[in-house]
Design a binder for these strands. Structure first.
Lengths: 347, 347
DNA sequence: AGCGTTACCGGTAACGTTCTCGGTAATTTT
DNA sequence: AAAATTACCGAGAACGTTACCGGTAACGCT
């Protein structure tokens, strides 16, 4: 019943070769005879050898773990992003360690610490709703862990970090434009925290669309919500006490739009007859509502894929720089992904 | 700019003590003078020392990683379960590595392999919709990593594994009973795959409730769906071609219920006037639908908490057995959590 | 023939901890 | 006062890999 797990030493002994060679075979290095490589691999398979990621990581100073920080586990959008991340990273032998900040800046910092403790090879992060500073990202950079931010980024970050987003201005613009084309005239916008880039940009897109069509933008029609749940009601209240109520509402994202729809229905307001509602996210869930939610689709999976790709790029660049003895210069890259309209029943 | 990370050796040198002692202080062992311990911890803090989980894991043969396998990332229920798992495990210094099987048995096996490769200390798993065998769980047991199954379990598994579920029979029973009390008479049930324990039990609960109330259970009224999305429509179709259509539907879980509601509405059938709909899950999302979904609440977070607790128990039992030179005897434990009704508008 | 390549392979020192064992001094017990 | 216990600490060997440096043989080139 003694079942010590086989190691490369065992393989080396049985094949009468050195551990170095076995290691080469296992990790698929060049510089090895295909024949011996096959022999090693065959025996490894036969005796059920498993490489110790721990030991390998210790020796090579790599963990083959990538940390992913998202604000919330249950938001469908992030689920789709993770799918894309996996799609890119799994074939490369990386595993994901997913943590969530619960939309709190404080917890977000803790997440970074956890991941750094774990010695992840890189971090993919989408900022929480309430994150105002990116000092914790700096911390990661100082430890030389590459980091890529996706979707929820900070507007003016001087940090030279790659970022992947959708064209948020365009999203806000197209959403508003769609409503205008449908004949709506008093269009409101439910925004998010001021510091949030997606909020700023989408709002900007909304404003631009309104102005270009000669509607102007009354401040009354722009109300912020500070989270995805509780304060949506307050935001909506502000709109409903207006003398001239809006005939359409653009919500910062789908989860907010879902709540808006629900709250309107509770007030007995018909959608889209009395008031139209638009989201921005492209959640599948929107299809299940009654009426189904018109939304701007964000290519979530692609975003994950691209972000992961960017991360690996950075990791390699860093390694190269090191090998050549140069200093690695972090870069600010901003990648914008195109969006598209999904027209459903709520408009 | 040379920034080699500090190790326990550095601390040992600067404090002129041995690495052993430093190690003792860091990992909080007894057998150390509180004074020296404080000195070590202070210096560690000061120079920004971080313990290498990799090295520690290698030496102690523990990774402090717990693997979590869920069928789908975007199902809210599992999000809540993970919250509970974290709640229990984080204080103990464990991190989670979350993977998903995409509701496929094959991928589920791969997940197990990934986790075993990672040398996780334990595995928490909820089976996929289509998992018919638990041989892959056996594999984990053979490698001596404890495993606990939650929510989605296999009905008749001879494997001595701890399992945490809700009282699924009771859930099906109460759901049906609620509808009966509301005056519905022809109540249909949308079940899942036959092999799925939750499906069996909830169905059984439904049957029992029907019979006890003298309604009997016509086979027509029980239709299965094989997944959470596509085949829901087919299941519903079967009910709608019946001469005597049902006046209420119990869905196996909330995601299915959401779809049922949507499909009914597309057919112009009013809920709950023409047909009532009930879910079983307790997803918050159900509140946002129009009408909001009446459901049976499963204590998801508690389930995660309990499952994690059970896992740690098993891990300790295994360790104890080893220390005393005994053989560890795995046990089949079945823990049932109570459910409760959330009455909303769909019934 | 001499020399530089190329293709392989081996030895050995890391990597940063923990663990086991043993030892010393101080403290308690008898 | 001797013996036993306790509290604390150190030395050094693991843990399982990879990285680095060298070395040998075979091959091709001038």
């Amino acid at each position: 019943m003694k079942k010590r797990k086989p190691t490369i030493k065992d393989i080396a002994r049985r094949l009468d070769i050195s551990v170095s060679t076995v290691s080469r075979a296992i990790r698929g290095a060049e510089d090895i005879n295909p024949m011996t490589k096959k022999k090693v691999l065959d025996l490894a398979e036969k005796i059920g050898y498993k490489k110790s990621v721990l030991a390998a990581g210790l020796a090579s100073k790599k963990s083959y773990l990538i940390g992913v920080i998202i604000p919330e586990l249950t938001v469908p959008f992030f689920g789709r992003v993770i799918l894309g991340i996996e799609q890119f990273l799994k074939p490369l032998g990386y595993d994901l360690i997913i943590v969530h900040s619960d939309e709190q800046e404080q917890k977000e910092k803790e997440c970074i610490d956890i991941l750094l403790d774990r010695q992840v090879d890189g971090i993919l992060i989408s900022l929480s709703f309430n994150t105002k500073s990116d000092l914790h990202l700096k911390k990661a950079m100082e430890e030389e862990v590459p980091i890529v931010v996706f979707d929820r980024i900070l507007p003016k970050s001087e940090l030279p970090i790659p970022r992947v987003i959708v064209d948020d201005f365009e999203a806000g613009y197209q959403a508003t434009n769609h409503l205008i084309n449908k004949g709506y005239k008093r269009i409101a916008f439910i925004s998010g925290p001021e510091d949030l880039y997606i909020s700023q940009q989408r709002l900007k897109g909304y404003r631009t669309a309104m102005e270009r069509n000669g509607f102007g933008t009354s401040a009354d029609l722009i109300v912020p919500t500070l989270d995805l749940r509780r304060s949506v009601g307050q935001a909506l209240d502000k709109l409903m006490v207006l003398k001239e109520k809006p005939d359409a509402i653009v919500a910062l994202n789908d989860p907010i739009a879902f709540r808006v729809m629900r709250l309107l229905q509770k007030r007995g307001i018909e959608i889209p007859e009395k008031i139209a509602v638009m989201g921005i996210s492209g959640d599948d869930m929107g299809e299940l509502f009654n009426p189904s939610l018109t939304t701007i689709n964000q290519p979530a999976q692609e975003m994950g894929f691209v972000a992961a790709n960017l991360l690996i790029d950075r990791m390699n660049a860093m390694k190269d720089a090191k090998n050549q003895g140069k200093v690695f210069i972090p870069m600010a890259i901003l990648k914008k992904l195109p969006i598209s309209l999904i027209e459903r029943e709520s408009t």
